[in-house]
């Protein structure tokens, strides 16, 4: 395998206060590395989009950071300490399809799961815990659905429940896996408003995103990923035609789409 020769392999100056610094991360399934040489510092208080073609390892990057899949090499630090010690500061919004929505729990129950860790081993859920969860649900605009069984929610509402669960946890750093996938426009707007609100509170949010048209509008930082980091940095600098071409190869339709988005951004 040839070593990629580009900017990503340059050594980053790892800052101890960065919400997330990934150092030399490689993940391999079977014989093939899925993502390799990820070396990044994410600055605080940014909305970060992770962009790349299908199979580029976007979700894999999140999961490896969260220790959900084994790493072949590398370390992940959160606010200067090992991730495992900082779990309370990290919130996670998995892909909506990753769970069984027929499960016999209400929306409120799911949101309460966000603070189970704070409740602690074997302790029962009390009224005040539910109050926190209810507030989070109201925050995402579906407070009235708290007692609905989750299978009776629409796709967008389910996504909001997942967001509320992450909110209830009150983390500093959020990982979100395709929160905009298959939701209605109203939910998409609600989510992006919420993300900007989190940002204004100084929190950092990493979002796996697939819609190139909205990248420039939503994120102030992007990571262009195709098994390795093609480019990472402030959207204005990094989200360029050339970088996109390097990320997506010759997939013209996508490039056209992105070009359209770029021209929109300029006008």
């Amino acid at each position: 395998m040839d070593t990629p020769d580009n900017s990503s392999s340059k050594a980053w100056d790892h800052s101890p206060s960065a919400p997330l610094s990934i150092h030399d991360l490689t993940v391999a399934y079977h014989r093939k590395p899925v993502i390799w040489d990820i070396d990044l510092d994410i600055p605080e208080g940014k909305l970060v989009g992770i962009i790349g073609p299908n199979g580029a390892g976007k979700s894999t990057l999140l999961k490896a950071c969260l220790d959900l899949i084994p790493k072949a090499s590398g370390t992940v630090q959160v606010y200067g300490k090992d991730y495992r010690k900082q779990r309370a500061k990290v919130g996670y919004v998995p892909q909506r399809e990753s769970v069984d929505w027929d499960f016999p729990v209400s929306a409120l129950d799911v949101v309460t799961m966000g603070i189970y860790r704070q409740v602690g081993w074997c302790r029962p859920i009390l009224g005040r815990h539910k109050a926190v969860a209810r507030k989070a649900l109201e925050h995402v605009g579906i407070g009235h659905l708290a007692d609905r069984q989750i299978s009776q929610l629409s796709g967008g509402q389910q996504q909001r429940v997942f967001l509320a669960r992450a909110l209830a946890q009150d983390a500093q750093l959020y990982f979100m896996d395709e929160p905009f996938a298959a939701v209605d426009a109203a939910t998409e707007r609600a989510i992006i408003t919420l993300l900007k609100e989190l940002k204004s509170q100084g929190k950092t949010v990493l979002v796996v995103h697939h819609d190139l048209a909205t990248v420039a509008q939503y994120f102030d930082w992007v990571i262009l990923l195709n098994m390795r980091v093609v480019a990472a940095g402030p959207t204005g600098e990094v989200f360029t035609q050339e970088n996109l071409k390097n990320t997506y190869g010759g997939k013209l339709t996508l490039l056209a789409e992105a070009g359209h988005a770029l021209s929109q951004l300029k006008s």
Binding site: T3, T26, A28, H30, A72
Partner: peptide, 22 residues
């Protein structure tokens, strides 16, 4: 040969090793 546990462990080690070298 491809999917064995020992084989896989060795491969992962080798990848890790080659990462460290490069």
């Amino acid at each position: 040969p491809r999917y064995g546990l020992l084989t896989k462990t060795l491969t992962t080690k080798r990848i890790r090793h080659s990462r460290e070298l490069s």
